[in-house]
Amino acid sequence: MYTPPSATQIPQGHPWGTPPIVPPPPKKNRAGLVLGIIGGGILVVSVSALMGFVLIERVLDGGFPQDRSTLTLPRTLLDGRFELAQDESGTLGRTLEKDWARSWDAKAAHGVVGVYDPAGGDHGTLVVTGMYGRFKHTAQVRARVLANRGEADHVTVLVPPRDVTPSGSAVTVDCEVLRRTWSDGKHLTYPVCAWADGNTWARVAQMTLNASQNADLKVAAGTTLRIRSAMVKAAG
């Protein structure tokens, strides 16, 4: 079990600023992929070559799962311990959609970003950043949305991402431990977990003092699965 350093006093309200946005996936590059498949040599444009391009296109675009689930933002999470304070799906969610629109391993992806405040005596914020649609290569998706590559200027990775899936779970959960530091030297250490399946993925940042003081990644993974159960709904 990882025991984090004690967090110093943190700013009040929503000290985290904009909820974290995950880095965009590699963009589609059909020309490069086609050349990579064919290799060097002279390309002769003919009917057969054009048919070959069509077949390559179908292979590259195939293999996506059926659309069975969506991702929602419930009013409360974790038995009412957290209440939805901000729905950023219309802004940050749209940014996610634009970034992922040209990904080879995502189709019809819709962004969902929610900021939740503790309803009890805890302090801080729980931020869920995710998408629903059709995804393949889910292990790569989990790796992509962790490690906090987009916020390296003020966030340090203390424990790198690793598989901490609870026993008996059919859904893999990867978690890491991050530390966010402010200009005045105040900081917060907190766990971040991610799941990814054929229809949904989400990054759960538990940026609260309670999570900071008890950053057990197995506990964080279990919490993430409870959040997933509340957020994932059947399509249609």
Rank of each mutant, 00 (worst) to 15 (best):
S183T: 14
S183P: 00
S183F: 09
D184V: 05
D184I: 05
K186R: 15
K186H: 12
K186W: 01
H187E: 11
H187C: 00
H187P: 00
H187S: 15
L188V: 14
L188M: 15
L188D: 08
L188T: 09
T189F: 02
T189N: 09
Y190C: 01
Y190H: 13
Y190R: 02
P191W: 01
P191V: 01
V192H: 01
V192F: 02
V192C: 10
V192Q: 11
V192D: 09
V192T: 15
C193P: 08
C193R: 05
A194N: 03
A194W: 07
W195F: 13
W195I: 07
W195S: 03
W195K: 04
W195E: 07
A196K: 04
A196L: 07
A196E: 02
D197Q: 12
G198Y: 01
N199R: 00
N199E: 07
N199I: 06
T200K: 07
T200L: 08
T200H: 06
T200A: 10
T200E: 06
T200I: 05
W201P: 00
W201G: 05
W201A: 08
A202E: 03
R203L: 14
R203Y: 08
V204F: 09
A205V: 06
A205M: 12
Q206A: 12
Q206G: 02
M207Y: 06
M207V: 09
M207L: 11
T208R: 09
L209P: 04
L209F: 06
L209N: 11
L209I: 15
N210V: 12
A211E: 10
A211F: 04
S212K: 00
S212V: 05
Q213C: 01
Q213P: 01
N214K: 12
N214P: 03
